[in-house]
């Protein structure tokens, strides 16, 4: 997570995107394609789509290709092909391993760099002029929930379970989660989710306004496609204008979030929390 990108490979990729387009991609962490004028971004990195350096790099490739993809599509759907769920959040094992290999200040700088990059990805998704849908099931934790929160709609199958467990590691969500939650939900609900670190099911998520539709097990992607088809009937400029009006992006709060995260990351409690998580033989390491 803390290593920089492979800059030559990335630059080459950008050139390819610019001059040849990138309508389809099949990577180690994710794939994308356009189907029926809908961009479908599928996460598929075992064990549960943890967001580490590989996933980040491929997300950056996706957002670099997105402006071109948007010309050929009317909507975007994010989903996971893994049984475990949508995404378990940041790759804590990679974070711990790499931070152990570095001096403290270098580790903090590496974390800051990772956060800046993932924020850029999240903000690009958030600001897409197309309607966006996260079709989720199973685990939607931490950074996975933050990724879903960039979307205009979250459609959850009834197995979905949501959680912000970061506080038990001595951290706050770092991928823009709190500002986006504050934008979308009431502050009392946000405090409950953050300060207890508890997980909650799809019905509860719908009750608090996080999820727009709860569907049967295995049905989220099908319903997302139907919803995308409906949204695709409208004039794209009108949709883009409506989105811009009703979904402001809280950039100032994001800056503050990164500062708070880095400050907390420098505390000994975080290293201890990560160590405990990574080395835990406890059968319940995910429970707050």
């Amino acid at each position: 997570m803390l290593l920089g990108r492979n800059s030559r490979r990335y630059a080459l990729f950008l050139v390819c995107c610019r001059f040849h387009g990138m309508k389809q991609f099949d990577g180690q962490a994710l794939s994308w394609t356009i189907k029926d004028r809908v961009i479908e971004l599928a996460l598929h990195r075992e064990p549960c789509n943890e967001i580490g350096s590989q996933c980040l790099e491929e997300l950056e490739q996706f957002t670099a290709a997105l402006p071109d993809l948007e010309q050929s599509a009317h909507s975007l759907i994010l989903f996971s092909t893994l049984d475990c769920g949508f995404c378990a959040g940041a790759d804590l094992r990679e974070l711990y391993r790499r931070s152990q290999e570095m001096k403290k200040n270098d580790a903090i700088a590496g974390v800051r760099n990772f956060l800046e990059r993932i924020h850029q990805v999240m903000n690009t998704l958030d600001a897409s002029p197309l309607p966006t849908i996260a079709a989720v099931h199973g685990i939607v934790f931490g950074g996975g929930l933050e990724l879903a929160l960039t979307c205009d709609l979250i459609i959850a199958d009834k197995t979905a379970r949501f959680c912000f467990p970061e506080l038990r590691l001595g951290l706050i969500p770092g991928f823009g989660g709190i500002p986006r939650l504050k934008r979308d939900l009431g502050n009392a609900v946000v405090r409950d989710l953050l300060l207890t670190g508890r997980s909650f099911n799809a019905n509860k998520a719908q009750q608090i306004g996080l999820v727009s539709q709860v569907v049967g097990e295995g049905e989220a992607l099908r319903v997302a496609r139907a919803t995308a088809a409906q949204m695709g009937k409208f004039d794209r400029n009108t949709t883009a204008a409506a989105k811009k009006f009703i979904k402001p992006i809280p950039y100032d709060d994001f800056r503050q979030e990164i500062e708070i995260f880095c400050e907390l990351f420098s505390q000994p409690a975080v290293e201890a929390g990560l160590k405990k998580f990574v080395e835990s033989a406890n059968a319940q390491p995910y429970l707050p």
Binding site: G138, K158, N201
Partner: peptide, 19 residues
């Protein structure tokens, strides 16, 4: 594991209609 236990918890919450 714990993630699978959470899937059981989800099913139990739905069945008993509780949180």
């Amino acid at each position: 594991d714990s993630l699978q236990a959470l899937s059981l918890l989800t099913r139990l919450e739905q069945h008993f209609n509780i949180e």
